[in-house]
Amino acid sequence: MNFEEKVESFRALAAERNMTFKESDTETHVTFLTRETTKSGAQPVMIIAFNKKTTDAELYAATVTHVPDYVEDLPILNALNEFNQEFKYFRCVLDSDRDVTLASTLDLDLGFSPEIILQHSFMMFQAADEVNEYMQKLYTQVQ
């Protein structure tokens, strides 16, 4: 299956499930974005990006939570390290804007299934909820 067929297959599955994504097409990626609210109140930007130059799909739950300036880095980094040990398929990172993001890369050479990509995104959304809930408690403990 070529790149265009993979993207079209994912697009068709999303339409079949009545899922609304903002789609963009750049030099390097075709990207599908949506923003939903988790049970704990996080509003991550959920991103599924098909890489045109490799066989990868990159998934993100961007800006799961913003770390307030009054919170020191060490407890946050320790919490993210714990999540990184717990999660098998996602990486938790703290970016330069002090936003926590989950990231994952799926190698589509190992087999392509739009259903698996969507399920992986759902699992990431659930993990984003868990991360946000824990971090909100951490913020109040260190105030």
Rank of each mutant, 00 (worst) to 15 (best):
M124Q: 06
D56Q: 12
K22H: 10
D97N: 11
A14Y: 05
V142E: 15
L102Y: 02
T101D: 10
D56Y: 06
T20A: 14
Y89I: 13
A42M: 03
L33Q: 14
P75S: 10
R91T: 09
F125L: 08
P68Q: 11
T38K: 09
L13S: 04
L77G: 12
L108R: 10
E86H: 12
M1T: 07
F87Q: 02
D97Q: 12
Y134V: 04
R11T: 09
E86P: 05
L80A: 05
D95W: 01
R98N: 06
E36I: 00
L106W: 08
P44V: 02
A15H: 03
H66S: 12
T105N: 07
R11P: 07
F32Q: 07
E23V: 08
I47L: 05
N84F: 01
Y139I: 00
M123E: 13
T105V: 10
D73A: 06
A127P: 02
F32I: 01
E16D: 15
K88S: 11
A15N: 11
N18A: 13
P114S: 08
F50G: 05
Q85F: 00
L138M: 11
R11Q: 14
D107F: 00
F90L: 06
I116Q: 14
P75E: 10
F90K: 02
E8G: 03
D109C: 04
S24K: 09
R17L: 14
I47Y: 03
F125N: 09
F122W: 02
D56H: 07
D69Q: 15
V64D: 06
N18K: 12
S104W: 04
Q126M: 07
P44Q: 07
Y60Q: 05
L118A: 13
V100K: 04
T65M: 13
Q141M: 14
Y60M: 06
V93S: 10
T34S: 12
D25K: 04
N78T: 14
D69W: 11
D95I: 00
Q143W: 00
C92K: 04
S24M: 12
Y89D: 14
I116G: 08
E130Q: 09
S96V: 09
H29K: 01
A42D: 04
V45E: 15
F87T: 01
E4M: 09
D129T: 00
H29E: 15
E82Q: 15
Q85L: 03
L94I: 03
L33K: 13
T31M: 06
V71R: 11
P44I: 01
T20C: 11
Q43I: 02
T34I: 08
S113P: 06
E8V: 00
K88I: 13
K22Y: 08
V100N: 06
H66A: 09
G41N: 01
T101L: 03
F10P: 11
R17S: 09
V131F: 01
V131G: 02
A103H: 12
S24R: 10
T54Q: 12
D129F: 00
A127R: 03
Q119G: 05
A103Q: 14
L80V: 05
G41L: 03
L106C: 10
D25Y: 02
Y89E: 15
M124T: 00
M1D: 12
E36L: 08
M19G: 11
L106Y: 10
Y70P: 07
A15F: 00
A128D: 05
R91Y: 03
F32N: 08
